[in-house]
Design a protein around this nucleic acid. Structure first.
Lengths: 198, 198
DNA sequence: CGGGAAGCTGACCTCCGGTTCCGGTTGCGT
DNA sequence: ACGCAACCGGAACCGGAGGTCAGCTTCCCG
């Protein structure tokens, strides 16, 4: 798992952050993660700052704007996604389709507690994804391999392609967000997995 | 098809609208429909007014707030949905599952050109749905009957229930809204339909 | 055709959340 | 210990979108 802890402006990489700055940065991310895990979808910068025990200005010192902050959350989430995919790829015991299904399920459990990533997935926010470009690229690579194997095993619908994975995740994210009584994203996923079978 | 043309405040039903008022009301709805059919998701009241060739005040004379206007669009859209379901129910030739599938597909084609309804479906906006309560009720009734038949014919997964229909539609709406290159809500639907089969 | 109710207009108000900015504070190399 | 660059805080700022209202216009009934 590439734990990069990227600085906001990262190019000619500068000297490490001052100790207090690094601490604050972590606190901010942590606060944002917690808030985006709650039910209210519209987390605002002041809240993040307050929960992190920090002024808004400090938040903006670390993240150029709201999208950059969300981008970092998305980036970390995609790291987890990739971890899930790698684990599925490494699994020797279950079949190719089962591995793919397990990875998908794990990712959705993960995204169920991260409104920031759901938002990114559903609003197609290019700006946000820009911060997680390399992670996304790896994601697509891993997904491709999982799919290739499932196709080879003849267990996956022929027309299923790699880009269908984020698409399907996007759809289920919507379900998670609404969460009306009687709705259940797990059933939604089950339905889709069933539909993916060759 | 119940073409009610409901007035905004409808209870002790008043005298009919003055001719120009009725004309304006129609224009406003038409303008809103057209704007919500465009790509930009965030239609604003001033735009609607302008396109209708009317002042903002007039829009607010007919609809107490933005949600009421969207509610009317949603109401009309659900009328179309119900029409689709009734047609599927009346179809003698195709099987029970095929009828259900056709209805779903028709509804999604319909919702693909109505961002207002997509929004309502995806944001679980109770406020908006309140304006279409009776239409929604009928929708669920019709859906139930279609599902009952498909279950009876043994063509539909046992655990598929009526509330899954709006849920699935919600998911696909998300896909429609994002519409990344390589994404295709038609494939998404096909996948789900395949998954619904017993 | 005249009066008045119904309807229309659009500048203005308000709220809200992201973003800025600068005076004060603090970690850290020397 | 000193000094300064990096960092912090949070009140103030700003723009955008929904919503209001006082004054004017239009329809329609008698």
């Amino acid at each position: 798992m590439s734990t990069k802890t990227s600085t906001d402006i990262e190019l000619g990489n500068e000297r490490p952050l001052r100790a207090d700055a690094r601490r604050n940065r972590e606190r901010i991310i942590e606060a944002a993660r917690e808030l985006f895990a709650g039910e209210r979808p519209n987390v605002q910068m002041d809240e993040v700052a307050q929960r992190a025990g920090v002024g808004v200005g400090t938040v903006y010192r670390h993240f150029s704007d709201k999208e950059a902050l969300m981008g970092e959350l998305v980036r970390q989430r995609f790291d987890l996604f990739n971890e899930n995919l790698r684990q599925a790829l490494a699994d020797e015991h279950s079949g190719a389709f089962a591995a793919l299904a397990a990875a998908l399920r794990a990712n959705l459990v993960s995204v169920a507690e991260d409104a920031a990533t759901r938002f990114a997935l559903m609003s197609g926010g290019e700006r946000v994804f820009a911060h997680a470009a390399s992670e996304m690229e790896e994601f697509m690579l891993l997904a491709n391999e999982l799919i290739r194997r499932a196709h080879l095993a003849g267990e996956l619908r022929d027309d299923f392609q790699a880009s269908d994975i984020p698409m399907v995740m996007c759809g289920i994210c919507a379900t998670i967000d609404v969460s009306k009584p009687g709705w259940d994203w797990q059933r939604h996923l089950t339905l889709i997995l069933h539909g993916m079978r060759a």
